[in-house]
């Protein structure tokens, strides 16, 4: 794997996680009286844009690599989302949630390796 491929895999992962965080932020703002609707639209649109970038990067990577090689990186998204949601959205991540996320990630990696 070259540095270029590795960077592309990393960018695909980061844009996917960023997309989920933006969608979550947008949907949180849908609470009545809280924010103007155009802010919701902005977050949702950038979330969808971010996930679209991730989708096409992944599609391009799939043309070069096996799915079973690329999918384990998807498994990392569970851990990454738990961490980034705690940091950027101030969600409370309990020890139990962290352990569960680790187990799920490990399971996804095993499923895709076999």
């Amino acid at each position: 794997m070259t540095w270029v491929s590795f960077s592309l895999i990393l960018i695909a992962l980061v844009t996917f996680v960023t997309g989920q965080l933006l969608l979550k932020k947008g949907m949180e703002l849908t609470a009545p009286t809280k924010r103007l609707p155009h802010e919701v639209t902005l977050f949702l649109a950038s979330g969808i844009l971010s996930m679209t970038i991730s989708f096409f990067l992944t599609l391009g990577l799939l043309q070069k690599f096996d799915l079973s090689y690329l999918y384990p990186f998807q498994g990392l998204s569970v851990i990454l989302i738990a961490i980034t949601a705690a940091v950027t959205l101030h969600e409370k991540v309990t020890l139990q949630l962290a352990v569960g996320a680790l187990l799920i990630s490990a399971g996804i990696i095993l499923i895709s390796l076999s």
């Binding site: 139990q96 949630l97 352990v99 399971g107 990696i109 076999s114």
Partner: peptide, 22 residues
Amino acid sequence: ISYLRWCGIALVVVGLAVVARP
């Protein structure tokens, strides 16, 4: 489904149970 894949599925289920319990 290979033996290893069944193990992976089991691991995901255990992880889900841990996340879902609280």
